[in-house]
Protein backbone atom coordinates (compact mmCIF):
# COMPACT_ATOMS: atom_id res chain seq x y z
CA UNK A 1 0.00 0.00 0.00
CA UNK A 2 1.43 3.37 -1.06
CA UNK A 3 1.98 5.81 1.76
CA UNK A 4 0.92 9.30 0.69
CA UNK A 5 3.15 12.07 1.93
CA UNK A 6 2.02 15.47 0.78
CA UNK A 7 3.90 17.16 3.59
CA UNK A 8 7.34 16.86 2.01
CA UNK A 9 6.07 18.08 -1.33
CA UNK A 10 4.04 20.87 0.22
CA UNK A 11 7.30 22.28 1.59
CA UNK A 12 7.94 23.36 -1.99
CA UNK A 13 4.55 24.98 -2.44
CA UNK A 14 6.26 28.29 -3.25
CA UNK A 15 7.81 26.66 -6.32
CA UNK A 16 4.43 25.36 -7.44
CA UNK A 17 2.84 28.75 -7.00
CA UNK A 18 5.67 30.47 -8.82
CA UNK A 19 5.26 27.97 -11.64
CA UNK A 20 1.55 28.60 -11.69
CA UNK A 21 2.20 32.31 -12.01
CA UNK A 22 4.57 31.76 -14.91
CA UNK A 23 2.11 29.42 -16.62
CA UNK A 24 -0.61 32.04 -16.24
CA UNK A 25 1.65 34.78 -17.61
CA UNK A 26 2.61 32.77 -20.69
CA UNK A 27 -1.01 31.85 -21.27
CA UNK A 28 -2.26 35.43 -21.17
CA UNK A 29 0.73 36.75 -23.10
CA UNK A 30 0.45 34.18 -25.87
CA UNK A 31 -3.33 34.58 -26.09
CA UNK A 32 -3.01 38.34 -26.55
CA UNK A 33 -0.23 38.04 -29.12
CA UNK A 34 -2.09 35.13 -30.68
CA UNK A 35 -5.16 37.31 -31.16
CA UNK A 36 -3.00 39.77 -33.09
CA UNK A 37 -1.52 37.01 -35.28
CA UNK A 38 -4.93 35.42 -35.65
CA UNK A 39 -6.60 38.64 -36.78
CA UNK A 40 -3.82 39.30 -39.27
CA UNK A 41 -4.10 35.76 -40.59
CA UNK A 42 -7.91 35.94 -40.81
CA UNK A 43 -7.97 39.25 -42.66
CA UNK A 44 -5.16 38.14 -44.95
CA UNK A 45 -7.13 34.99 -45.73
CA UNK A 46 -10.19 37.11 -46.57
CA UNK A 47 -8.17 39.57 -48.64
CA UNK A 48 -8.59 39.84 -52.38
CA UNK A 49 -4.82 39.74 -52.83
CA UNK A 50 -3.61 36.27 -53.64
CA UNK A 51 -0.17 36.81 -52.14
CA UNK A 52 -1.61 37.74 -48.72
CA UNK A 53 -3.89 34.74 -48.79
CA UNK A 54 -0.95 32.52 -49.68
CA UNK A 55 1.30 33.85 -46.92
CA UNK A 56 -1.42 33.51 -44.28
CA UNK A 57 -2.35 30.06 -45.44
CA UNK A 58 1.27 28.91 -45.40
CA UNK A 59 1.79 30.27 -41.90
CA UNK A 60 -1.34 28.60 -40.61
CA UNK A 61 -0.66 25.24 -42.16
CA UNK A 62 2.95 25.10 -40.93
CA UNK A 63 1.90 25.78 -37.37
CA UNK A 64 -1.18 23.59 -37.47
CA UNK A 65 0.49 20.59 -39.07
CA UNK A 66 3.63 20.31 -36.95
CA UNK A 67 3.71 19.40 -33.24
CA UNK A 68 4.03 22.30 -30.85
CA UNK A 69 6.86 20.57 -28.98
CA UNK A 70 8.89 20.34 -32.18
CA UNK A 71 8.19 24.00 -32.90
CA UNK A 72 9.36 25.02 -29.43
CA UNK A 73 12.55 22.96 -29.68
CA UNK A 74 13.16 24.25 -33.19
CA UNK A 75 12.73 27.87 -32.18
CA UNK A 76 15.07 27.55 -29.23
CA UNK A 77 17.77 25.19 -30.54
CA UNK A 78 17.61 25.38 -34.36
CA UNK A 79 16.51 28.91 -35.21
CA UNK A 80 19.55 30.58 -33.54
CA UNK A 81 21.80 28.61 -35.93
CA UNK A 82 20.06 30.33 -38.85
CA UNK A 83 19.93 33.73 -37.21
CA UNK A 84 23.47 33.74 -35.90
CA UNK A 85 22.46 34.86 -32.40
CA UNK A 86 20.79 33.13 -29.50
CA UNK A 87 17.25 33.69 -28.33
CA UNK A 88 16.30 33.42 -24.69
CA UNK A 89 14.05 30.53 -23.79
CA UNK A 90 11.39 33.00 -22.67
CA UNK A 91 11.26 34.79 -26.01
CA UNK A 92 11.41 31.58 -28.04
CA UNK A 93 8.71 30.06 -25.85
CA UNK A 94 6.34 33.01 -25.91
CA UNK A 95 6.71 33.61 -29.65
CA UNK A 96 6.20 29.98 -30.57
CA UNK A 97 3.15 29.63 -28.35
CA UNK A 98 1.69 32.84 -29.76
CA UNK A 99 2.26 31.90 -33.37
CA UNK A 100 0.87 28.45 -32.72
CA UNK A 101 -2.35 29.63 -31.14
CA UNK A 102 -2.59 32.48 -33.67
CA UNK A 103 -2.78 29.93 -36.48
CA UNK A 104 -5.80 28.32 -34.83
CA UNK A 105 -7.39 31.63 -33.84
CA UNK A 106 -7.04 32.76 -37.45
CA UNK A 107 -9.17 29.85 -38.54
CA UNK A 108 -11.75 30.57 -35.83
CA UNK A 109 -11.92 34.26 -36.74
CA UNK A 110 -12.12 33.59 -40.46
CA UNK A 111 -14.94 31.08 -40.22
CA UNK A 112 -16.77 33.34 -37.76
CA UNK A 113 -16.61 36.25 -40.17
CA UNK A 114 -17.61 34.04 -43.08
CA UNK A 115 -20.59 32.68 -41.19
CA UNK A 116 -22.35 36.05 -41.23
CA UNK A 117 -25.00 36.25 -43.94
CA UNK A 118 -24.06 38.20 -47.05
CA UNK A 119 -27.27 40.20 -46.66
CA UNK A 120 -25.73 41.88 -43.62
CA UNK A 121 -22.85 43.22 -45.69
CA UNK A 122 -25.28 44.38 -48.35
CA UNK A 123 -27.50 46.10 -45.79
CA UNK A 124 -24.47 48.00 -44.49
CA UNK A 125 -23.34 48.85 -48.00
CA UNK A 126 -26.83 50.00 -48.94
CA UNK A 127 -26.66 52.87 -46.44
CA UNK A 128 -23.25 53.85 -47.77
CA UNK A 129 -20.91 52.23 -45.24
CA UNK A 130 -17.37 51.50 -46.36
CA UNK A 131 -16.10 47.93 -46.16
CA UNK A 132 -14.19 48.84 -43.00
CA UNK A 133 -17.28 50.32 -41.36
CA UNK A 134 -19.27 47.25 -42.31
CA UNK A 135 -16.61 44.97 -40.85
CA UNK A 136 -16.43 46.70 -37.45
CA UNK A 137 -20.05 47.76 -37.01
CA UNK A 138 -22.00 44.98 -38.65
CA UNK A 139 -19.94 41.83 -39.16
CA UNK A 140 -17.60 41.72 -36.17
CA UNK A 141 -20.16 42.25 -33.39
CA UNK A 142 -22.15 39.32 -34.75
CA UNK A 143 -19.15 37.18 -35.59
CA UNK A 144 -17.57 37.54 -32.13
CA UNK A 145 -20.61 35.87 -30.61
CA UNK A 146 -20.25 32.93 -32.92
CA UNK A 147 -16.49 32.69 -32.42
CA UNK A 148 -16.52 32.82 -28.66
CA UNK A 149 -17.10 29.16 -27.75
CA UNK A 150 -14.32 27.90 -30.04
CA UNK A 151 -12.10 30.78 -28.98
CA UNK A 152 -12.39 29.87 -25.31
CA UNK A 153 -11.95 26.21 -26.10
CA UNK A 154 -8.73 26.94 -27.97
CA UNK A 155 -7.54 29.14 -25.10
CA UNK A 156 -8.12 26.36 -22.58
CA UNK A 157 -5.94 24.11 -24.72
CA UNK A 158 -3.43 26.92 -24.89
CA UNK A 159 -2.99 27.04 -21.13
CA UNK A 160 -2.30 23.32 -21.09
CA UNK A 161 0.11 23.70 -24.00
CA UNK A 162 2.33 26.02 -21.99
CA UNK A 163 3.43 22.87 -20.13
CA UNK A 164 5.53 21.98 -23.17
CA UNK A 165 7.81 24.89 -22.32
CA UNK A 166 9.36 22.61 -19.67
CA UNK A 167 11.42 21.22 -22.56
CA UNK A 168 13.33 24.49 -22.88
CA UNK A 169 13.50 25.04 -19.10
CA UNK A 170 10.98 27.83 -18.79
CA UNK A 171 10.03 27.83 -15.13
CA UNK A 172 6.34 27.18 -15.60
CA UNK A 173 4.23 24.80 -13.56
CA UNK A 174 5.25 21.53 -15.20
CA UNK A 175 8.94 22.41 -15.11
CA UNK A 176 8.65 23.40 -11.46
CA UNK A 177 6.93 20.12 -10.69
CA UNK A 178 9.82 18.34 -12.36
CA UNK A 179 12.18 20.27 -10.09
CA UNK A 180 10.18 19.49 -6.97
CA UNK A 181 10.07 15.83 -7.91
CA UNK A 182 13.83 15.86 -8.33
CA UNK A 183 14.25 17.19 -4.83
CA UNK A 184 11.66 15.10 -3.03
CA UNK A 185 11.48 11.86 -5.03
CA UNK A 186 7.72 12.04 -4.63
CA UNK A 187 6.38 11.82 -8.20
CA UNK A 188 2.87 10.76 -7.22
CA UNK A 189 2.31 13.72 -4.91
CA UNK A 190 4.20 16.20 -7.11
CA UNK A 191 2.37 15.46 -10.33
CA UNK A 192 -0.96 15.13 -8.57
CA UNK A 193 -0.53 18.61 -7.15
CA UNK A 194 0.43 19.90 -10.60
CA UNK A 195 -2.70 18.36 -12.09
CA UNK A 196 -4.89 19.87 -9.38
CA UNK A 197 -3.36 23.31 -9.91
CA UNK A 198 -3.97 23.13 -13.68
CA UNK A 199 -7.52 22.11 -12.94
CA UNK A 200 -8.01 25.05 -10.59
CA UNK A 201 -6.79 27.42 -13.29
CA UNK A 202 -8.95 25.99 -16.05
CA UNK A 203 -12.20 24.95 -14.41
CA UNK A 204 -13.40 28.56 -13.94
CA UNK A 205 -12.60 29.22 -17.58
CA UNK A 206 -14.72 26.38 -18.94
CA UNK A 207 -17.50 27.34 -16.52
CA UNK A 208 -17.35 30.90 -17.76
CA UNK A 209 -17.53 29.67 -21.35
CA UNK A 210 -20.69 27.71 -20.57
CA UNK A 211 -22.24 30.64 -18.75
CA UNK A 212 -21.39 33.03 -21.56
CA UNK A 213 -22.77 30.73 -24.20
CA UNK A 214 -26.04 30.38 -22.34
CA UNK A 215 -26.30 34.14 -21.93
CA UNK A 216 -25.56 34.71 -25.59
CA UNK A 217 -28.17 32.23 -26.65
CA UNK A 218 -30.77 34.06 -24.59
CA UNK A 219 -29.98 37.39 -26.27
CA UNK A 220 -30.48 35.99 -29.74
Amino acid sequence: MYEWDFYTVAQSMDLFLKGMGVTFTYTIGSILLGIVFGLMAAFARLSRFFILRLIARTYQEIFRCTPLLVQILWAFYALPLLLGFTISNQVAGLLTLSLYVGAFYGEIFRSGINSIDKGQTEAGAAVGMSSRQIMWNVIMPQAVKKMLPSFINQSVIQLKNTSLLYAISVAELTYMTYVVNGETYRPLESYTIAAVLYFILLFPMTQFADYFERRMRRSD
Binding site: D117, G119, Q120, A123, A126, V127, G128
Partner: peptide, 14 residues
Protein backbone atom coordinates in the same frame (compact mmCIF):
# COMPACT_ATOMS: atom_id res chain seq x y z
CA UNK B 1 -25.52 54.65 -51.90
CA UNK B 2 -26.05 57.50 -49.48
CA UNK B 3 -28.49 59.00 -51.95
CA UNK B 4 -30.11 55.80 -53.19
CA UNK B 5 -31.80 53.70 -50.52
CA UNK B 6 -32.45 50.00 -50.93
CA UNK B 7 -34.83 47.58 -49.27
CA UNK B 8 -34.24 43.85 -49.63
CA UNK B 9 -36.45 40.81 -49.93
CA UNK B 10 -35.07 39.31 -46.72
CA UNK B 11 -35.02 42.57 -44.73
CA UNK B 12 -31.38 42.13 -43.65
CA UNK B 13 -31.91 43.98 -40.40
CA UNK B 14 -28.95 43.96 -38.03
Amino acid sequence: RRRVGMVFQHFNLF
